[in-house]
Write a protein that binds this DNA or RNA. Sequence first.
DNA 1: ACTTTAAATGAACGATCGTTCAAGCTATAT
DNA 2: ATATAGCTTGAACGATCGTTCATTTAAAGT
Lengths: 195, 195
Amino acid sequence: MSKKPKFEREQVIANATNLYWEKGYHGTSMRNLQDAIDMRPGSIYAEFGNKDGVFKASLEFYAQAAIAQLNKIKADGLSPLEALKAFVKHAVVDSQHNAPSSVCMLAKTIAELTEEHEELLTVAKQALKSVEHQFALLIEQAQEAQAVSSQKSASELARFLQIQITGLRTYAKTSDEPLPLAQMIDDLFEHYPFQ
Amino acid sequence: MSKKPKFEREQVIANATNLYWEKGYHGTSMRNLQDAIDMRPGSIYAEFGNKDGVFKASLEFYAQAAIAQLNKIKADGLSPLEALKAFVKHAVVDSQHNAPSSVCMLAKTIAELTEEHEELLTVAKQALKSVEHQFALLIEQAQEAQAVSSQKSASELARFLQIQITGLRTYAKTSDEPLPLAQMIDDLFEHYPFQ
DNA sequence: ACTTTAAATGAACGATCGTTCAAGCTATAT
DNA sequence: ATATAGCTTGAACGATCGTTCATTTAAAGT
């Protein structure tokens, strides 16, 4: 004796993610959100609690999508290093034209929020850390296959890679003229500290 | 027959910059600003026009302060490469504890704002470009002194350096444990594409 | 068919947003 | 001393913010 919610939770969160990704936490109002996900305030609050609840769900969805993307690329039968490079190109190059913002949503969130929203900040940090851990696993494999230098540890290289991705994606938004991003990424993997 | 404004414009903008730097454009309200700069709304609007006007003045002040800092370091008699390294350490390491945010205010602004605030975005982009140009001038000198590889052009290296600084400063905020930032910067200048 | 129960709705709340402006105040010129 | 010019003040504006909840709707159980 009940009634099931009719909205598609996955699609709703995907739409919310796109809006938050584009406009940021403070730049997005609940009314913006209502339009983007086609839900009325009562339903949103019943499902997510409040504005922070929707944002938290979006951060987790975004991170999960990134890891799913990495797994999908891994399934293509590429070498660990090639898979990693393909993922970076996807994250950096494709998001220039196909994404709400060229900047990584997690990096944007960490840059935007203060201790005033500690929980959201923590979720974003942990999400970024879990992606970085996936990088480290791939790098470890690449090192075992002698495809990447072992001068630095896999976790150090994963950290280095996060820094490069964050820098590239943010810089891409600062530049009006198009950048040779794919070439810059090839260059990246061909030199220190990867080779 | 008149009356001079009694506030110190420079100090007011410095305080506004610190607040905007910490909380971002959308995270800062005019009432936050009124408290931080100790001015009443009428005086603020007379001096700056509106909220965007204060933000624009802050962006320009921030960029000017960065270039002044670089010039100050250059006056210390260091080599061009040493000066550049000292500046990067100042920007990356010192801002971890002595600044409103570890993240560069210009990068934060570019990540936060959309085309909805085109003018502010343009100001931030141009400011970052002018800092990058100062890098290029120093790098050119370092290349002439054979202190930096000439494999890549000075402007390419300046771009590369901006990407590293943006990446490092953002990553620093994502990390709860302290990072060996100074060492990472030394490492940066000792390898490709600088050497 | 009827009852039950939970989901969906959207008007409305108090708070806060960016901004305005009439009134007050004070330094300067006469 | 007085008049004048213009900076300073802060109450108040309409708009929008995040959020609530009484009401309506409709699917599931009998």
